[in-house]
Simulated assay, not measured.
Amino acid sequence: MKRKKHTSGDDDAAVDMTPMLDIVFIMLIFFIVTTTFSSEKGLSPTRPPKSDTPNPPSKSLSIRIDASGQILMAGRIVDIRRVVANAQTYLANNDTDSAAIQADEDTEHGVVVSVMDQVKLAGISKISVLVKED
Rank of each mutant, 00 (worst) to 15 (best):
M1S: 06
K2W: 03
T7L: 15
G9Y: 07
D10Q: 15
D10G: 14
D11S: 14
A13F: 12
P19G: 04
P19N: 05
P19R: 04
L21H: 14
D22F: 10
D22V: 08
D22Y: 10
I23T: 15
V24I: 15
V24K: 13
F25T: 14
F25D: 10
F25E: 14
M27T: 13
M27A: 07
M27C: 10
L28V: 14
L28C: 10
L28H: 05
I29Y: 00
I32S: 09
I32F: 13
V33S: 06
T35D: 05
E40L: 11
S44L: 12
S44W: 08
R47H: 08
P48F: 05
K50A: 15
S51G: 14
P54N: 12
P56T: 12
P57H: 09
P57C: 09
S58W: 04
K59A: 03
S60H: 09
S60W: 08
S60F: 04
S62P: 00
A67M: 12
S68C: 00
G69Q: 10
G69N: 11
I71P: 08
A74G: 10
A74P: 02
I77P: 07
V78Q: 11
V84E: 11
N86T: 03
N86W: 04
Y90G: 04
Y90V: 02
L91V: 02
L91C: 03
T96C: 09
T96V: 04
S98Y: 05
A100D: 07
A100V: 15
Q102W: 08
Q102G: 07
Q102V: 11
A103R: 05
A103W: 05
D106M: 12
T107Y: 02
G110P: 01
D117K: 07
Q118T: 05
V119S: 04
K120I: 00
L121I: 14
G123H: 01
G123E: 04
G123Q: 06
I124V: 02
K126I: 03
I127D: 03
V129M: 03
L130Y: 10
L130T: 05
D134R: 11
